[in-house]
């Protein structure tokens, strides 16, 4: 995994984004002219009540959803109007997405799940094996490579999902309530992993969470309410930045 050396470079720029969809007979507007800028290497936490637009924002950044208006610029590329196929191909290298419900393929082993996105890259089998090994080692699950998701605990499943998300060495990691379905111990492990990815490997992370404990690893917290950012409190983790990332246990 490479370390992103770029500093203070805007990697995500959301400009006046509005997103509306229909739910039953009601028009829902999870994002209403929201603006956001994220710098390379940030660990941004998005908080807010359910339905405030946090996950929608992540989906827009990942290009798996499109805004009704506004611009989504990721890594200096305006992806707002890209067709689906272009977005899909772009996501392979650009985005690592972590879901609350892990979303692993139940019929594939941990190793195969991590290998899945690598199959789409023009790399040799040997290189692929090496990358899967590295990713599993990083999340501390080398010894569970042959296990199927049903044979893993929730925390282990989420760690495999993280390994899958980072295997392609994406520039940024988007995590949608990654600890939401985990017990506190597993949640701590997962958060520590994310912190490592941010601090040790310089990955830009945007994480949605309800958990204030989870937020303490961030470099910045933003609150969303009714589709708009309501405040930008001080990063709570200035103190943590001095912690040597190498000391963190995956």
């Amino acid at each position: 995994m490479t370390v992103d050396q770029t500093e203070n470079k805007t990697v995500i720029h959301i400009e006046s984004v509005r997103k509306t969809y229909r739910k039953g007979d009601v028009d829902v507007t999870p994002l209403n002219h929201a603006n956001l800028t994220v710098q390379t290497g940030e660990f941004l936490v998005l908080m807010g009540p359910s339905g405030s637009g946090k996950s929608t924002l992540l989906n827009l950044i990942a290009g798996i959803d499109k805004p009704n208006s506004g611009q989504v610029i990721v890594d200096n590329q305006n992806i707002t109007q890209w067709p689906e196929t272009r977005l899909t191909v772009w996501r392979r290298r650009a985005i690592g997405y972590i879901f609350q419900q892990f979303n692993l393929m139940p019929v594939l082993t941990a190793y195969e799940n991590v290998e899945l996105p690598l199959l789409l890259l023009p790399i040799t089998r040997q290189k692929r094996r090496q990358l899967v090994g590295t990713a599993l080692e990083l999340v501390g699950l080398s010894d569970r490579a042959d296990h199927y998701p049903r044979q893993l605990s929730g925390g282990q499943e989420q760690r495999v999902a993280i390994a899958q998300a980072i295997a392609t060495d994406p520039k940024m990691i988007l995590a949608d309530e990654p600890t939401g379905a985990l017990d506190s111990e597993s949640a701590a492990t997962v958060l520590d992993l994310l912190r490592q990815l941010n601090q040790r490997f310089g990955k830009t992370i945007v994480m949605v969470t309800h958990d204030h404990q989870a937020a303490r690893f961030s470099t910045r917290i933003l609150h969303l309410e009714k589709g708009r950012f309501v405040d930008t409190p001080e990063a709570p983790l200035k103190a943590l930045s001095s912690v040597d990332a190498a000391e963190a246990t995956p």
């Binding site: 798996i64 689906e84 196929t85 191909v89 996501r91 392979r92 996105p117």
Partner: peptide, 8 residues
């Protein structure tokens, strides 16, 4: 999920 991971 496959599409999220880059499968067209």
């Amino acid at each position: 999920l496959l599409r999220t991971r880059g499968f067209t």
